[in-house]
Amino acid sequence: MSDSNKQAIAHYRNNFLKEVEDHVEDGEWVRMCMQCGVCAGSCPFGPHWEHSPQKIFMMIRAGKREEVLSSDSMWMCTSCYNCIVRCPRKLPITHIMHGLAHYAHRLGIAPKGQPTREIARLFWVNLARTGRVNELKFSLAMYFKDGFVQGIKNALAMQGIGIGLMKARRLNPMELLGGHKCKDKDGIHKMIAKAREIEERKQKFV
């Protein structure tokens, strides 16, 4: 178990709702849920997760910490914002789901190998490197995330699409050798590092 997870458990004991309110983006909204289920019925990936937002909110209030943070339901969010605009209580549900996913990832208890968790990490690493996303390097990183052999298989399976995009000039093989970037990438690195430092400071369990 990660140190931060141990500290969180020690600090909040059985009050998981308080932990969510203190540490999860827009977590203070969780107690406003009236369990109507509109979010559950509005999610495009509804058939694919175990816990709807409605269930997750009730589980938070019931103190089911482990089940919530290790759930892969939050990682099924496509950011379509259906739940936000339909919620009769105006809970920012999409943001709470993102916040929970990030919190579980930060504590190291999000499901291992969860594909969206993994591509979210690769995407951030890609954009933070130069300030701009390099679509080719990002695609290759995704193909090869489960090892070299699987990577070759994935790349071959998508070969037709890749060639089609190249012909349409929407994928440039030269991006592999550098590609688009921000001029002030050093400034961007320092800026992100500082933002992380401030976030760490706020997230301390004291």
Binding site: S79, R106, A195
Partner: peptide, 10 residues
């Protein structure tokens, strides 16, 4: 999907 690794302030 920036939320996963990035979190709020970054």
């Amino acid at each position: 999907i920036g939320y996963g690794e990035g979190g709020l302030l970054p």
